[in-house]
Design a binder for these strands. Structure first.
Lengths: 208, 208
DNA sequence: ACTCTATGTAGCCAATGCCTACATAGTAGA
DNA sequence: TCTACTATGTAGGCATTGGCTACATAGAGT
C-alpha cells in the first residue's frame, strides 16, 4: 500500500459508497461515522467536512437512491410493449429495487418525510407516480382502460406497489415469491382499471 | 407525590408506556434507555432488569402494537354491514392506526423481519391478512365477488393497504387526505375483485 | 512568493448501551 | 421467627458514538 496522501481526494464519494454497503449489511443502526472513517483510513472528523452531521449523509444517500430508482423506473416505462406489459415492468423495476436495496429504500422514505428534507428530494420522490400517471392516461386514451381520474388511479397503483415493495424488502412474505406478489398485484390493479369503478352495492355513497 | 419506594412496582409497564410516547415524539432514534429511566425516576440500569437490551424493549413494544392493531382490525371486520363496507372499515382501521402511530408501526415491521423475532410476533403480524382472506372468501361465496384465489387476493389487498398506511403515516401525500386515499384504494381493489382477473397480457376486450 | 480556502487531523466532551458488583425488598420454608 | 433465595433497583465503570474546536496541510488564485 502506498502512503495515503494527506488529502483523500474523493472522500465524499467514498463515504457514500461505503455507507451504502454498510447500511445494507448492518442496517442504519449499524452505520457509524467514525467506523466509516476508519474503513476509509481517514480521521474520525474527516466525514464532518463533507456532511454536516449524520443526517446530512443519510439525506445524500437518499438523494442518490431516488435518482437510481427513478432512472430504472423511467427506463422500464420507456421500454417497448403494450401498456399493460409496461405497467408490469414498471412495477417490477420498483419492487426489484426495493428487494435489492431494502435499507436504502427505508432511508429514502424516512428522510423524505423528515421536516427539513429538501424540496428537490420530495420532488424526486414523486417522479414514480408521475410515470405511472402518464402510462395510465395513455392506456385510457387508447381505450384499453375505462375512463377515470388517472391521477387517482396512479396514486392507488403507486401506493399498492409501494406496499408490495416494502413487504418484499422486509422479507415479510413467507414462501411467497416476489414475482408472484408483483404479478398478483398488477393483475388485480389492472383488472380494476379495465373494469372501471361501477357504483357497487346499490348506492353506497362511499365515494368521497 | 410520595417518596418513590425502592421498588417501582410497575416499572415494566411504565417503561413501555413512556417509550410509546417518546418514539412518536422523537422517533426511534430519540429513544434512550437512560433518558427513559430518568423520566421515570429510576436508576439508569433499572430498565436492564426488565429488558435485556434496547432491542428487547422494541420487541415488546412491537408485540403490544400488533395486539392493539389486530384488535382494532378484528373489531372492524366484525361490525355489521355488507361485505364491501366491512372491507372499507378494515382498511380504515389499518390506515387510521398507521396514521395515529406511525413510528410504532415502523418499529413493528422492522422488528418483525428481525432475525430473532419470535414466532409469536410473526404470527400476530399475519392476523390482518387472515381477516382479509376470510372476508373475501365470504363475499365470493355470496356471489358478490368473482370466484378467484382468495388467498392471493387477500395478499394483494393487504399489501396495497399496507402501502397506503405507510405513505399516509409518512405524511408523503401532499394535500391528499387519508380518507380519500383509503377509499380510492378500496374502490380500485374491490372493482378488480368484482370483475375478476381477465387473462393476463392481452385479452383486454373486457369492460372499457 | 503570499494568502485564502478546502480538506484532513487530533483532542475534547457529554451521552449512550451494556457490563459487573452491590443494596434492598418481598417471599417461602425451616 | 429466623433465614435463605429471588426479584428488583442502585452505583459505577468502560468502550463507542456524534459533534465541537483548534490546528495542520495542500492546492488554487493573486
Amino acid at each position: 500500500m502506498t502512503d495515503q496522501p494527506y488529502h483523500h481526494g474523493k472522500l465524499r464519494e467514498a463515504l457514500l459508497a461505503r455507507a451504502t454497503e454498510v447500511i445494507e449489511e448492518a442496517g442504519v443502526e449499524g452505520l457509524s461515522l467514525r467506523q466509516l472513517a476508519r474503513d476509509l483510513g481517514v480521521s474520525h472528523a474527516a466525514p464532518g467536512k463533507h456532511f454536516r452531521d449524520k443526517q446530512a449523509l443519510l439525506d445524500a444517500l437518499a438523494r442518490d437512491g431516488f435518482r437510481g430508482m427513478n432512472a430504472r423506473i423511467t427506463a422500464a416505462s420507456e421500454a417497448a410493449g403494450g401498456h399493460r406489459s409496461r405497467f408490469v415492468r414498471i412495477a417490477r423495476a420498483y419492487v426489484d429495487f426495493a428487494v435489492s436495496h431494502p435499507v436504502l429504500l427505508a432511508v429514502m422514505h424516512s428522510t423524505k418525510h423528515h421536516p427539513d428534507a429538501s424540496d428537490e428530494l420530495r420532488s424526486i420522490g414523486e417522479d414514480g407516480i408521475r410515470v405511472a400517471r402518464a402510462l395510465i392516461a395513455e392506456a385510457q386514451a387508447a381505450g384499453e382502460l375505462a375512463p377515470a381520474d388517472s391521477e387517482r388511479l396512479a396514486l392507488v397503483c403507486f401506493v399498492s406497489l409501494h406496499g408490495a415493495a416494502m413487504l418484499a424488502a422486509g422479507n415479510l412474505l413467507d414462501g411467497t415469491s416476489v414475482d408472484y406478489l408483483t404479478l398478483a398485484t398488477t393483475d388485480l390493479l389492472w383488472a380494476g382499471m379495465v373494469a372501471g369503478m361501477p357504483a357497487p352495492q346499490g348506492a353506497s355513497g362511499v365515494g368521497a
